[in-house]
Amino acid sequence: MIKNKIVITTFLGVLLLNYFSCTKPVDFNQANTLVLEPVVESSLIFYEASAKDFFLGGSEESVAEDFIEIDFFNNSFVQDNLVKAEFVFNIENSINRGYQLHISFLDNANQLLERFTVNTSASANNNIIKTTHTEVFEGETLQRIKRSRILVFTLVMLPGEAINADTPGEISVQSKGIFSLNIN
């Protein structure tokens, strides 16, 4: 009887040892293949004006330009991990004039790297005309805009019916960037 008990105890001991020796194959090196692919969306520029805002000092102001210096691309995280950049512009226009919005990417030396244009047509009856424009940068074009340090926005009011302080209508621009990252 005592023998039996010793056998049982030994068996339990062996079971304990097994407990720490039996594993199925695992491969912790898999962690090296980790890829994060977040897609970040961010608001960019926005702008709203009425027709009379383009009538300054008694005459039409048909070209307006502004710029920002950007550091966004000037860091290794974005340089290494950004694989795609999309820019989405939503324009609503109820002014009876067409518009072009040019977005220009300039490098340190003010050299033009890339440029795209968002068009919206004139609204003859002052109803809101909605335009959506998506500009995609991948591969070579993306590599070019990664060098940009200055963004220039140029709004051009296209020729048409003259405006004055009483011309009805509004134009609004909303925009976002969609940045796809691949981090590994």
Binding site: S43, D53, L56, A64, L155
Partner: peptide, 11 residues
């Protein structure tokens, strides 16, 4: 809170 940049043109 961030909602973007407002370029103030026309001047």
């Amino acid at each position: 809170t961030f909602e973007g940049i407002d370029p103030l043109f026309p001047e």
